[in-house]
């Protein structure tokens, strides 16, 4: 690690994203100061099937919706929220 400050977040995937990635949870190691956008970019390198438009991802950190420039802390739970449009229409 040679002095490089790191943080680890737990990514949660649901519904269509879970099926495309083939997993419901994974850990992501990121440099200190990383944002949601940084986490999404790293995640999509490993699992590009999740979406082809990362700018439109809806993300919750510790179960609250946050913008993509939101800074992450070590131990955060980062959930990717697929479009929510259940129920009747």
């Amino acid at each position: 690690m040679a002095g490089v400050s790191q943080l680890k977040v737990e990514v949660r995937l649901f519904a269509s994203y879970r099926e495309r990635a083939g997993t419901a949870r994974l850990d992501l190691d990121l440099p200190d100061g990383s944002t949601i956008a940084d986490a999404a970019a790293k995640l999509l390198q490993a699992h590009p099937a999740i979406t082809n438009d990362p700018t439109r991802l809806v993300v919750a950190v510790n179960q609250e919706y946050q913008e993509h420039d939101h800074p992450l802390q070590d131990g955060d739970e980062v959930a990717l929220i697929p479009p929510v449009s259940g129920g009747s229409r």
């Binding site: 649901f14 519904a15 269509s16 099926e19 919750a60 919706y65 959930a79 929220i81 697929p82 479009p83 929510v84 449009s85 259940g86 129920g87």
Partner: peptide, 26 residues
Amino acid sequence: IKQVVPIWKKEFFQDGEIWVGSEREH
């Protein structure tokens, strides 16, 4: 509820299934 509550619905058909709101059908 449909805008903000993280609950998802999957419809099952004879010949396939789809998460409602997702752009791709499986």
